[in-house]
Amino acid sequence: MNAHELHGESHGESHSNCKHLLADLSDYLDGEAAAEVCAEIERHLADCADCRAVVDTLRKTIHLYRTLPQPTLSPDARSRLFAALSLPK
């Protein structure tokens, strides 16, 4: 499998929509795509293993970064900030 195939240049008609559908994937995964776009994407995914892999791994990527622990401003840094701004702690 390679990107050449994803463009539909070696699979024929049924895969000519890969690149076109790619543009709507974020809306699709965010639940913001129109019903007809969702239906079109799902029809295509049923037949295209490459696009299924892209959608699955994109969904997983989104989940991974959304559950990443967030960096925090340390209490020492907060104290320095308040001191620099001459504010009551």
Binding site: K19, R52, D56, T57
Partner: peptide, 21 residues
């Protein structure tokens, strides 16, 4: 354009939650 087309979602959850990941 997606070039990586292997579906790695089958990996065990521990592999996603490791410090390295």
């Amino acid at each position: 354009t997606p070039m990586q087309l292997f579906d790695w979602c089958c990996l065990p959850e521990d592999d996603f939650q490791s410090n390295e990941a």
